[in-house]
Design a protein around this nucleic acid. Structure first.
Length: 995
RNA sequence: GGGUGUGUAGCUCAGGUGGUUAGAGCGUACGCCUGAUAAGCGUAAGGUCGGAGGUUCGAGUCCUCCCACACCCA
């Protein structure tokens, strides 16, 4: 540049904006939150909803306990993006956040506080205890609400739903009463972990495992009979010889097996009196063994025969003190033969037993038998073991195998022969006398083969540190295969039938959710509704004193009693159940209170949350018309949790599902795909991310991940997310700069625009469909990826790069006005499309252009796309143009790397186009502008040998030529006419622009 | 131990019904620009498609087994 050439920089229309390149989100986000609060965005959208179609995402309530972790953040962010995107697509999208308030973890915390103060829970009145639980939950609700809001989650935070609201407690009780009245409620029993010391049932989370030394015994169960299945000899095809052979073999086996003893091994001798069966493993190899010699002290006799798993025989005999050579294997025992055996309890027929154990024991194969330890046979006391209980429940034989031998305090019932009154554990938790009594009796009757002690991991009470036992306890169940009988049978008669039918009326995202829930529903047992706890909604019912559960008038079913309970709960909460005189109050004058027992179990908290559809969707003014939610959205673990209990509950009370869509997200893992844990030090806490990067980065991480599967998060991933954010932010910043002082009068109609602008509009029309379809399918990842790539590939690297020349250097030309019109249209679309994800940043961008106290992107809808923007023919033409451009750009790159040129404006290449259609197309556009060269020549002549070609762009050869002329000091193009105009060192265009 | 699901470049993801040298963006390296400047443009490197068998003329895509991780259950 000559010394006397003016500096033209100030005469250009350079981008002008105060929008900062760096966001400073952690500091600035709270300001926008404050602003939305002042505007009252959520409420205003509700007020202005008019006849917008409603859209309701029903919140699955988090547990009101502790600070938020990354899973909470993921969960609520997805929900928020669903709600916001539907709002902006034209719905009235409502969202009422909720909290799950009742239940064990809160009870614990309160008990823990008691222990610190040296107080005992049992000495505190229940109502006081419940009140403390309530305040505890309230405290955490406040904390979590603030933490959720900080993430930019919108919703009715002023009036959330709580499962401990009085109305909620009333509805939960009311829903329970529906099960009471329609006959699906019944009392049964089930083995649970029971602490004899505290005389209470324990949940899995309330036990801890410690090493414990236990008695271990090997017990003989005599074989009394052997019978092969009839089918074996009645086969018509069989010859007489075969028949005789089988009969002979059968007789031989019978001689060998009857009188032999099946040996079981157990570490809980006290369960032997409750034994009802023995099971074996179908695939193990078993043998018949005979004792051929014995040492001095031994409980086996010469000639005694035992059936054992071959793999475990030697070690069993060793425990019985037999030495090598004092026993021999006689023969195989096949599983078919095992199945033909009949067993007897070792105490059968013993004098003084009063026939207690005389019935034949059930004997069959089961899949929980192991051949790793023991004998290959497992003794079953289904009252004291989960696996055995499940086995016999599945067989429908529970009534034959359930015993009631063990009392609350761990003692045997008084009338149990030999052992009545003995205790498994003493009151102080130490070993009682029951095990010894059982062992002694077995020795006395010759029922024991061996004994020993073993150290093993065993569950202990978290509170008393004493060992626990498995014990069947009375519990309340909802029968899921019994006809409900409420007349709402359009989807089936029983709860299970209805649930299975309804699953197929729901849309599952991802689709695999359907099968997950379906298989669970097919296989699940009756719903155990009762918990022996204090903080929750009680099972509001009465049972007749002295009546058995099977008697028809066992349960009190009276609408008037129910109504009194509900009225009290509505006004006073479920505490009313625990107040003095509650029984008399609710039973009223119609019943003699002394004849009825008030039930004090509380409902499974899954029943609470399973009922939210009733007290939220059905009952709230901002619920839904039909009580059904458009969407339930939770983690995949909720197939067994909330999706499951909500469906069971809803189907049992309304006959249909409470949701139309079920969306699930996976779990959040660390960067390597492992579970996060404090001990591994790989946890990412939302609060930290917000502090370091801002909530928008966390939200963007959610949008970039495939949330339907497990996702990963970690320092590197967050850094990548922040990088993407910056790229996008700068693109928006450029738009803002280009739009400075844009006015309505500058607007140019589509048909007046250059084709390049029309092509951008075509892309916008395409994207509009992608965005809306994506949001409707809850597929944020696809939406964001498409929009983001559009911004980088189509805008930043192409359209913006090309139009910088016109935007900066043109005077008030139609070309420039068209470009700015497109910028404006882009602005409205990009901001609204991205607002559901980047709630803070899009507000910032929006306010930069449309400041104002009441202004907010979140009050906007996504603009409709005019039908004529879509122009497939134009699009096809411009794909061709862009292909040719790629060849030119690549050709220039060669010159650049060889230091022939720096900027592309130094070039004016000759482009040989050997395709007529392409040549014709290129001639209709300003190809030099598109390639950002000072000039370009188009020719149909065949390209010379030395021309540059791209293998993927056929029929185009580029011959490099340097641009002729001088550099225009204003627009930097190199043109021949520079210097011939009134403004020194300018080209014609710039000269005119300068006026 | 059982059931379900996931596994494609450093990162986030595309890859209808099996068919040419497996794609994109980000990041990285290098170059250009210095009028989007702690920015912008371009080029390049980078993958035994978790592993091993099998079906097929041909498999990231179908089948079997295995491995890793996760969730649910026992």
């Amino acid at each position: 540049m000559c010394a006397d050439t003016p500096d033209y920089k100030d005469t250009l229309n350079l981008p002008k904006t105060d929008f900062p390149m760096r966001a400073g989100l952690p500091k600035r986000e709270p300001g926008w939150l404050e602003r939305w609060n002042e505007i009252g965005v959520y409420d205003r959208l509700r007020e202005e909803a008019g006849d917008r179609p409603p859209f309701t995402l029903h919140d699955g309530p988090p547990y009101a306990n502790g600070h938020l972790h990354i899973g909470h953040a993921l969960n609520k962010t997805i929900k928020d993006m669903i709600v916001r995107s539907h709002q902006m697509m034209g719905h009235d999208a409502r969202y009422i956040p909720g909290w799950d308030c009742h239940g064990l973890p809160i009870e614990w915390k309160i008990e823990e506080q008691y222990r610190k103060k040296g107080k005992n829970k049992d000495e505190v009145p229940v109502i006081d205890f419940r009140q403390e639980c309530r305040s505890f939950a309230e405290g955490w609700i406040g904390v979590q609400r603030d933490e959720f809001k900080r993430l930019g989650i919108t919703g009715n935070w002023a009036d959330p739903y709580l499962t401990m609201d009085f109305h909620a407690e009333r509805v939960i009780a009311e829903e329970f009463q529906k099960f009471l009245m329609n006959g699906t409620l019944y009392q049964g029993s089930k083995p649970v972990m029971w602490s004899p010391v505290e005389e209470t049932a324990l949940a899995e989370a309330e036990v801890e495992y410690h090493d414990k030394e236990s008695f271990t015994i090997w017990v003989k169960f005599p074989v009394t009979e052997f019978r092969l299945p009839e089918a074996d000899v009645s086969d018509e095809e069989m010859s007489d010889e075969e028949r005789e052979g089988i009969a002979a073999a059968k007789a031989e086996a019978r001689d060998a097996l009857v009188g032999a003893k099946v040996v079981i091994w157990t570490t809980t001798p006290w369960t032997i009196p409750s034994n009802k069966a023995v099971v074996f493993g179908e695939s193990f190899s078993y043998g018949l063994y005979e004792v051929t010699g014995t040492p001095e002290e031994c409980w086996a006799n010469v000639g005694e025969r035992f059936i054992l798993a071959d793999k475990l025989a030697a070690q069993t005999f060793a425990k019985a003190r037999l030495e090598e050579g004092q026993w021999r294997r006689v023969r195989d025992v096949t599983s078919a033969q095992l199945a033909g055996l009949t067993l007897q309890h070792p105490l059968a027929g013993v004098e003084g037993a009063n026939g207690e154990w005389d019935d034949a024991r059930d004997f069959r194969a089961a899949d929980f038998v192991t051949d790793e330890e023991g004998t290959g046979f497992v003794h079953c006391a289904p009252s004291h073991g989960m696996e055995e209980y499940e086995l016999y429940r599945g067989l429908g034989m529970l009534d034959r195998v359930i015993t009631y031998n063990v009392m609350d305090d761990g003692s045997f019932r008084e009338d149990l022969p030999f052992f009545g009154g003995t205790r498994i554990l003493k009151a102080n938790g130490k070993e009682g006398d029951a095990n010894k009594a059982v062992i002694d009796k077995l020795v006395e009757v010759g029922g024991l083969l061996a004994r020993g002690k073993i150290k093993h991991s065993y569950p202990h009470s978290w509170r008393s540190k004493a060992p626990v036992i498995f014990r069947n306890t009375p519990q309340w169940f909802a029968a899921i295969d019994r006809p409900v009988g409420d007349g709402q049978d359009q989807n089936g008669k029983t709860i299970r039938e209805r649930a299975l039918t309804c699953i197929d009326q729901v849309k599952w995202t991802p689709k695999t959710g359907r099968n997950r829930l379906h298989s669970m529903m097919e296989g699940r047992p009756d719903w155990v509704l009762s918990r022996q706890r204090a903080w929750g909604v009680p099972l509001t019912c009465f049972v007749k004193k002295g009546a058995r559960p099977t008697e028809p008038d066992f349960l009190l079913r009276d609408e008037k009693v129910n109504a009194r309970i509900l009225e009290a709960f509505e006004a006073e909460g479920a505490d009313a159940w625990y107040k003095d005189g509650a029984k008399e109050r609710f039973l009223g004058n119609d019943y003699d209170a002394s004849e009825w027992v008030q039930v004090f179990d509380i409902l499974d908290v899954w029943f609470d949350s399973g009922s939210t559809h009733a007290f939220v969707l059905r009952d709230r003014p901002d619920g839904t018309k039909d009580g059904i939610a458009d969407v339930y959205m939770e983690g995949t673990d909720q197939h067994r949790g909330w999706f499951h209990s909500s469906l069971l509950q809803s189907v049992g009370t309304t006959g249909r599902a409470p949701y139309r869509n079920v969306v699930t997200h996976g779990f959040t893992l660390d960067e390597k795909g492992n579970k996060m844990s404090k001990s591994l030090g790989n946890t990412i806490v939302p609060e930290e991310v917000v502090k370091q990067y801002g909530a928008d980065i966390l939200r963007l991480w959610v949008a970039q991940a495939d949330y339907t599967a497990d996702q990963r998060i970690g320092p590197e991933i967050l850094k990548g997310t922040a990088d993407s954010y910056r790229r996008l932010r700068n693109t928006l910043r450029f738009m803002l700069g280009a739009l400075a002082h844009f006015e309505e009068g500058d607007r140019v109609a589509r048909e007046e625009m250059p084709e390049l602008e029309q092509w951008v509009l075509h892309r916008l029309a395409e994207l509009d469909e992608v965005v809306r379809e994506g949001y409707r399918a809850f597929d944020f990842q696809h939406v964001f990826q498409q929009v983001f790539q559009f911004c980088t590939v189509d805008l930043s690297a192409y359209y913006f790069d090309i139009r910088k020349d016109a935007l900066y250097c043109d005077g008030d030309t139609e070309r420039r006005r068209a470009a700015r019109t497109v910028m404006d249209l882009l602005f409205h679309r990009l901001t609204t499309w991205l607002a559901p994800v980047l709630v803070f940043t899009m507000e910032e961008v929006w306010l930069e252009r449309f400041p104002g106290e009441q202004s907010s992107i979140h009050l906007q809808d996504m603009p409709e796309t005019p039908a004529d923007w879509r122009d497939p023919a134009l699009s096809e033409k411009w794909q061709m143009v862009r292909r040719a451009r790629r060849a030119v750009t690549a050709a220039l790159e060669v010159q650049r790397s060889e230091k022939v040129i720096g900027a592309s404006l130094e070039a004016a290449p000759v482009v040989h186009v050997e395709d007529e259609a392409m040549l014709a197309a290129l001639k209709t556009v300003n190809f030099a502008d598109l390639c950002i060269t000072s000039d370009i020549s188009l020719t149909g002549d065949p390209a010379p040998q030395e021309a540059f070609r791209l293998p993927e762009v056929e029929n185009v050869g580029v011959v490099f030529e340097r641009a002729e002329g001088q550099k225009c000091q204003r627009c930097w193009k190199i043109l021949p006419d520079v210097g011939t105009h009134s403004h020194p060192d300018t080209c014609a265009r710039c000269d005119e622009a300068l006026g």
